[in-house]
Amino acid sequence: MVVAIYKTELNTGRALLSNVTWDTLEKLDADLAETGARLTYLDGYLEIMTPLSDAHEEPKKTLGLLLEIYMLMRNIRFYTRGSTTIGMKELGARKEPDDSYSLGTRKSVPDLAIEVTVTSGGIDTLEIYRRVGVREVWFWEDGVISVYCLRSTGYELVSKSELLPELDLRLIEFYSRMADQYDALNAFMKLLM
């Protein structure tokens, strides 16, 4: 087994390895299970990220809570999947979304995946989601949400969610940037009433 370190970024806790087999991925996953490391895999490239910082976790949680409040207040049936690993060996792809949701019914592949981006570069996340068949992917970066919808040719950047077309993403962005999470959630909920 030959694994090459392709790139490391010590400041971010991220390493990108190449020539990694699926069997090696599974062994590393088991070995790192208790560390909180996140593993992303695509065609022999493995990205290992740890630890997840407050700069990542706080907006991720706030964004998820805002979305869940919206769906509850609008009686949209959803099932949160959190960061459940999706992908498989046959696809040559695997990812743990920051958050994910199935709308309407429980599904093995979520309809919506959310990624909070605090560092850039690394593995092509959209290619992983395309192979798996996730219908919509949101990227939150510096308080701005970019929405990608799956098409037959790949993902297309769109101006609003097709899964939740009535949702005003600019409001979600505004409340996700508020300094106090409780105040943000409370104000957003009052706005929806």
Rank of each mutant, 00 (worst) to 15 (best):
L171H: 04
G13R: 06
T153S: 14
D23T: 05
Y148K: 01
A55I: 04
T62P: 02
L163H: 07
M49G: 07
S102R: 00
R81S: 03
L52Y: 02
H56V: 06
L42I: 11
M178C: 08
I145Q: 03
T24E: 14
G104H: 03
F174Q: 13
A4S: 13
A15H: 02
C149K: 00
S176F: 06
R130S: 13
D23A: 14
I172Q: 01
M1S: 15
S83M: 06
G82K: 07
L52S: 13
P165A: 05
T80E: 12
E96F: 01
T84Y: 08
G36P: 02
V20S: 08
D54N: 10
E141F: 03
I145H: 03
S18H: 03
G87P: 04
M49T: 13
G143E: 09
Y79R: 13
E96R: 10
L42Y: 12
L167I: 14
I86V: 15
V109H: 10
F188D: 09
M71V: 02
N186W: 14
E96T: 04
D29T: 06
T80P: 12
V118P: 01
K60D: 10
I128S: 03
A93V: 00
K107R: 15
V134N: 08
R177F: 04
G44F: 02
M49Q: 12
Y129G: 08
N19M: 08
M189I: 01
D168T: 03
R81E: 11
G64I: 03
R177A: 06
G64E: 09
E115W: 07
V116C: 05
T35N: 11
T35I: 11
Y129V: 07
T50C: 12
T24W: 03
Y41E: 10
V132Y: 05
D183R: 05
P97G: 07
L39R: 12
L25F: 15
V109D: 08
S18K: 14
S161H: 02
F188E: 05
L192I: 08
P110K: 04
M193C: 03
M193L: 13
Y182G: 12
E166A: 08
I123W: 11
V147H: 00
E127C: 00
Y45H: 15
L167Q: 03
V144Q: 10
N75E: 15
A15W: 13
T40F: 08
L66M: 08
G122T: 09
D54R: 11
T24F: 04
L46F: 06
L28W: 15
M49P: 02
I5H: 03
F188C: 04
L72A: 12
Y79K: 11
T84N: 07
T80L: 02
S18C: 09
T153G: 01
F174N: 09
T85W: 11
E156V: 10
S146I: 00
R94K: 15
R151G: 12
E68Q: 09
E26F: 01
A33I: 11
G122P: 05
G13S: 01
E9C: 12
I172N: 02
M178Q: 14
R106P: 13
A30F: 09
